[in-house]
Amino acid sequence: MIALALPAETENGSFEAPGLEDLHLPNIIPWMGEGAGFNKQMLLVLLSVVLISWFFVAAARRGKMVPGKFQFLGEWGYGFVRNSVGKDVIGERDFKPFVPLLVSLFFFILVNNFFGSIPLIQLPTTSHVGTAYALAGIVYVFWIGLGLKKHGLRYFKVATVPSGVPKAILPLIILIEIISTFLVRPITHSLRLFATMLSGHLIIALSAAGTAYLFLDADGPLKALGVLTFAGGVGMYLFEVMIQVLQAYVFVLLTAIYIQGSLAEDH
């Protein structure tokens, strides 16, 4: 449970809810002045790359016709993204070149989300908006570049001019499409992941800090309420694990939808 060691009591004995500053440790290697440096988030991002690489290399190292549990898990995870996202969304004819990107994104986000539920680590790196912006930015540049490669400059017409729209309202529709496709889409793609992970992390931290306060510092009958906050915190913890998986899936699903849109012949 997160934040059991957080300060839950002020000098006058009242409860103080944890804030964003309580969820992150100081920089491991500071540089460029106060507030900048190599921090826990950066370390976990590097660790996730090592873990994912090791997992798939180890799962594929001794491939057998009848896979063992480890090989089965790797093949199942790869096949889930390949078929349920890539093949079903992009289409059987075009999906194969994009499977490596989709699989990499899914497992990178999944592992970094899971870090928020692992004791002693307890930090989903995607709860930092910079991580979410970087992932969405990579996808944004990729599907625009793919559209230009497929259609040339005509892509901007394909992406912003829907077919069958009356000419009288076409300028307004084009403006809306430009804003929603090229401005709003990358923002919502990133903030959906960031906001969900941050809010879940804060809720669990609040439940943990409230439980610690009620058990250790509250008086009389209020201590009994600690059982309720603890039970609620466990429930939110399990719910957060489900959300961590769901958000990885949603991010990759939207990526596949954007790729499919870049390949489509009309809007």
Rank of each mutant, 00 (worst) to 15 (best):
V252P: 05
R185I: 01
M65E: 15
L120S: 14
G226A: 07
L183M: 12
G261S: 14
Y78P: 09
L43Q: 02
L238F: 10
P162Y: 08
G261I: 01
K69D: 15
N12G: 10
R185N: 11
N112T: 15
A132G: 10
V250T: 11
L254F: 15
P26R: 08
M42I: 08
P166Y: 01
L47P: 12
M242T: 11
G86F: 01
F194Y: 14
K96V: 10
M65T: 13
L73D: 11
M1E: 11
P221F: 15
G19D: 05
T196H: 00
N27F: 00
G226T: 06
G13V: 11
Q247D: 15
F15E: 02
T188L: 10
A231L: 14
P119L: 01
F182W: 12
A218R: 01
V139A: 09
A3W: 00
H151F: 13
F142W: 12
I178H: 03
Q260E: 13
F56Y: 13
G226L: 04
F80H: 09
E265V: 09
F38G: 03
I2T: 04
M197V: 06
D94M: 01
E9M: 15
I169W: 04
G79P: 02
L214D: 02
A208S: 15
I203P: 12
H201L: 11
A208C: 02
I204F: 04
L175W: 09
L44W: 00
A36V: 11
G233N: 08
L110M: 12
F80D: 09
P166E: 07
I121N: 06
E75H: 13
T181W: 13
N12C: 08
G210Y: 07
K64Q: 13
G116M: 03
V99Y: 04
I118L: 08
E34C: 01
A218L: 06
G232Y: 12
A132P: 09
F156N: 07
L153R: 14
A168I: 07
F56N: 11
L228H: 00
V89R: 00
V99C: 05
P119F: 05
E16H: 05
V85W: 05
G210I: 03
P100V: 00
F106Y: 14
Q71F: 00
S207C: 15
H151C: 09
L175K: 12
D94W: 00
A60N: 15
S262K: 02
S14T: 15
Q260H: 14
P97Y: 05
M65F: 11
V165S: 06
L43C: 03
F72A: 10
P100Y: 03
H189W: 06
G137S: 10
H151M: 14
T188S: 09
F215L: 13
L102S: 05
P7C: 08
P100A: 01
L222K: 07
L214T: 08
K64G: 03
A264Y: 04
T181G: 04
V50H: 04
L44H: 02
I178V: 14
I187W: 12
L23P: 03
K150G: 08
W54H: 12
G261L: 10
G130C: 01
